[in-house]
Design a protein around this nucleic acid. Structure first.
Lengths: 193, 193
DNA sequence: GTCTATAAATGGATAGAC
DNA sequence: GTCTATCCATTTATAGAC
């Protein structure tokens, strides 16, 4: 049979990447191509037509996930905010106001870690993080305050990995305080021992 | 052949768990039993004698890793420190002064995440984290300060996952400041918006 | 562009020798 | 207590039909 009516090759590719994300989240990195393909509504042969090997599929999936994270930071940028620390504030917002609940957040984090089993993915993630760090370093905040805020945001966003919730009142309030601190950088320096 | 001279069953078990940790770190959760066994210097059949199934081996490995983390916190407790926040300070020290370099820290974290593919391990990690959270909550610090310090410590310890270093001067200084904050909890309140 | 069928390899687990 | 040999299920990837 030829092309399924109403589904372009791009659509199929997209469906396969989405299916791969779902299935790998649920089953881990050794989810089979067959299961991923069926989940996307194509056969294993159909999948292999679009992604020559499992490694290629995984690599594309990783690119996709990293791009989505970048996009969420860009979306969190406040156009009216031009003060130093504007990117850092977007980073906090992106990390702490997930569109999903804690369970899927946990699984998404676990997904990326699973994908990093593939060395090419690990290198991709490393390069991505390096670029992000450079951008944050150029955001105009004192290095120590930046380290605090980024570490706290990272810690809160990874907490679901271990099953903890980041939706408690204390956490929401903490997020506000972190943003506040980036707007008043001198406050943190007064805390020096 | 019978028992290898000079190696008790306990020794073999230990060697197998260590080998499993190394091999899974390097190859991911679908490392084969054969490879793990050979790395420990026994046959696949020998491995299966000690751990009835792969799942059982993985579960024991997870217990082992979580116990090691708990032990590192206990070891970081300062006996002469009896002020509120003493456990939190040990937590910071344990999270931020790893015995290993960044690469192996990353791999150790990745190891636990890989193991969590097994639902029984995910549940184990969740229960473990819950107990830790309860202990920290009873440590005598204001909830919001506790949330900040724990999030920052978690963030710094998980940063190597993405390839970032936590060994910069800013990070070392941040660790000191966090400890300082736990000793002067009222200072944090002065930073409230 | 997608499917079926199949090859080729690998992995987990069992049985039984030693 | 550990090893060898083997079975069976699963998986990736290929070949070629439609």
């Amino acid at each position: 049979m030829g092309r399924t009516a109403g589904r372009t090759p791009q659509d199929t590719r997209r469906a396969l990447l989405d299916a791969a994300a779902d299935v790998v989240r649920a089953r881990g990195i050794h989810a089979s191509l067959d299961e991923i393909a069926r989940f996307a509504g194509v056969s294993k042969g159909g999948l292999i037509y679009h992604f020559a090997s499992k490694d290629e599929l995984i690599l594309e999936l990783a690119r996709d996930q990293l791009a989505a994270f970048q996009a969420s930071i860009d979306a969190a940028l406040d156009p009216s905010d031009t003060a130093p620390g504007r990117l850092t504030r977007a980073y906090i917002r992106a990390a702490l106001t997930p569109a999903q609940d804690d369970v899927t957040l946990r699984e998404s984090l676990a997904l990326v870690v699973q994908l990093m089993t593939l060395p090419a993915v690990a290198e991709l993630a490393r390069a991505d993080a390096e670029q992000m760090d450079a951008a944050l370093a150029a955001d105009g905040l004192p290095p120590e305050l930046l380290a605090l805020v980024v570490a706290a945001a990272d810690g809160m966003s990874t907490a679901p990995l271990w099953g903890a919730s980041t939706q408690t009142p204390a956490h929401r309030r903490l997020a506000q305080q972190l943003v506040y601190l980036t707007r008043h950088p001198h406050l943190w320096e007064t805390l020096t021992p």
